[in-house]
Design a protein around this nucleic acid. Structure first.
Lengths: 240, 240
DNA sequence: CAGTGGTCTAGACCACATC
DNA sequence: ATGTGGTCTAGACCACTGA
């Protein structure tokens, strides 16, 4: 192992990540037990354990004593709304509420999304316009851009399913696991279009959350912008 | 150990935290080595290690191979600006820039800060009004409230030192270690006073960041509100 | 050079989930 | 009863730091 100065447990981790990437174990499915993996790699159980513990910390897998180690999913049993930071003023999550699909079409990325994704501004993409409601009235406009290259038939699936969670759809249909997002929050006035959608009658300040989502492989998969009525929701964050 | 179902490494961790809380080792100072602690507690080195690893993960201590384990500080060598999430649009941190103290006085908490801190609205506190500048012009107004009870002579120290970092001051003068903050981000229009300070000539949307800071002991120590020019800075966040 | 944290092994026992 | 992850031990060797 001379040419590779990485500790063994990191090599094991890297290999396990490759297996997840290759779809050997899909989200919600179990990995082999520590003992089985230790035998397979011809290492001690403690070394394999350390590899898995890092994956737990990364949020890639979830462990349950007595049951096993499972690939984390965005579905309801694991970590739904994992990346949601927008809450109603009362404090509960807004995500549980209804989602309305407004538009779905093929576009070019445009300058801003292209910058976020590190692609060219003319790259083909699927654009999705959605509206999230709270207590029956709209609070959040979402504009989602998914580059064509990474998920070619995404528009078909979106049109058919209109999923509440794009990331759950990506993991189920494309085995693309979103494991990290970067967000930028700004304040600005709503555009006329946004004002119409959110029911503003006058120029109103809104929260704008720009997001780039990265897959387990490290690729920027999705760019989205969320525009919310700041009188009814806020962006909450705990920092340690 | 029957009455305490906590694993040994957590009991060790709890005790080490108590020691830090008691000031046995101050920020930047070294803890005893694993071997010394293992001998002291009559446990194996691995158990002590696991306790310390959790403290590393919590951000309470920092380890350096060959040197030792040190209590994390907010000073420049350790983790300055640990809780800063506001960046200039170019991307660099805004914190490096100048801080101007505008006012410093004794007040009552008021309804909003009281709610955040879990205290009564008439509780006495020290209020600090500061202005942060970027490239020589103001971008951020900070209003900081520190309850009297937790740090009695804080006003004196603030007046004398006008520190760039309140948290560094707290750890140095009161041995209060801020280890966690909760933040709520909103968009609204600047007040007239804020507009004057930030140089707005018309009603302008601003980012409002409300923050409660918690000490190692778990007490809410500080409430602050930061109002920033959203054209020049944004709130950035990475979620995993 | 002695001391530190970082890696790795090979065992042991436990609580828990499942069948 | 079996298998899983969680805890704990008692060693070993390594790379790095600082005197």
């Amino acid at each position: 192992m001379r040419p590779n100065p990485q500790p063994l447990y990191r090599q094991v981790k890297a290999h396990l990540v490759q297996c997840v990437l290759a779809g050997e174990w899909r989200p919600t499915e179990a990995l082999p037990s520590e003992i089985a993996l230790a035998r397979e790699y011809n290492l001690s159980q403690g070394t394999v354990r350390k590899a898995i513990e890092e994956m737990v910390h990364d949020g890639l897998v979830t462990r349950q004593a007595g049951r096993g180690t499972f690939v984390t999913s965005h579905n309801g049993s694991y970590r739904p709304f994992r990346f949601h930071r927008l809450f109603s003023e009362a404090g509960e999550k807004i995500a549980g509420d209804a989602v309305r699909y407004l538009a779905l079409r093929q576009v070019q990325l445009g300058a801003r999304a292209a910058r976020g994704l590190g692609l060219g501004p003319t790259a083909p993409a699927t654009e999705c316009l959605r509206l999230r409601e709270l207590d029956g009235t709209p609070v959040l406009v979402e504009r989602i851009l998914l580059p064509e290259r990474l998920c070619p038939d995404i528009a078909t699936v979106l049109r058919a399913e209109r999923p509440g969670s794009v990331y759950l759809m990506l993991e189920q249909h494309h085995n693309i696991l979103i494991t990290r997002v970067a967000e930028w929050v700004r304040a600005r006035l709503a555009t006329d279009e946004e004002g119409d959608l959110l029911g503003f009658s006058a120029p109103t300040p809104v929260l704008e959350v720009e997001r780039v989502a990265y897959s387990l492989g490290g690729e920027a998969v999705e760019w989205r912008i969320m525009v919310g009525d700041s009188a009814r929701l806020h962006y909450a964050n705990d920092v340690t």
